[in-house]
Simulated assay, not measured.
Amino acid sequence: MIHIKPFDYIFYRIATSKFYQKLDSKTPYIWAFGSLSFCQLCNVLTIIGIFQTIHGKNILSIPNLSMKIGIPLGVFNILFVTTEKKYRWLIEKYKNEENRTLKGWFVISYVTISILTFLIITDFCL
């Protein structure tokens, strides 16, 4: 099993959040997959947007690029990060974790910053 610790943990915390548990208690890991993939896509597009802004060229179209990056990223996440087997394993691994609240704020910050920086940088690139 491949372990990408920060993304594993973010996936685990999103999947076990009360919001996703209420939304779909049987398969919250599927909802967490979508949320994590969206944040990762925002990160990649933000980095590309920063390079485009620095170089003063709009070489790549963000809407077209999002499909070209989003599909392989989603496939990668399905294969290595967001499987039900990994979800069960992460529940066991983190059931008695320390500093749960602080780590929860890390996850909330990651999601918020990912989306906000993407929105800000796309305002410059589009």
Rank of each mutant, 00 (worst) to 15 (best):
Q21L: 13
F76S: 05
F11P: 01
Q21G: 08
T82W: 04
T27R: 14
D24N: 15
I115M: 12
T27F: 12
I71Q: 03
F106H: 13
K86E: 05
T27E: 10
K18H: 11
I62S: 11
F51N: 05
L79W: 02
Y12C: 07
C39Q: 04
W105V: 11
Q52S: 12
S35D: 09
C125G: 01
S37N: 11
G49W: 00
G56S: 03
N96K: 13
G49V: 00
S114W: 08
S66C: 02
V107P: 01
F118W: 04
L60Y: 14
G49Q: 03
S25I: 01
L102R: 14
C42G: 05
V75Y: 10
T46P: 01
N43T: 01
L126V: 11
Q21S: 11
G74N: 04
K103Q: 08
V107E: 11
T101N: 14
L36R: 01
N77Q: 02
N64M: 14
F7A: 10
I14S: 02
L45F: 08
G34V: 04
Y87H: 15
A32D: 09
F118P: 01
I69G: 06
Y29R: 10
Y94H: 11
D24R: 14
V75H: 08
L116E: 06
Q21W: 10
K95L: 07
I115G: 05
F38T: 11
I62G: 03
T117A: 13
I10L: 09
I4D: 02
K86G: 04
V44L: 10
I2H: 12
K93N: 12
T53C: 10
D8W: 03
D8Y: 02
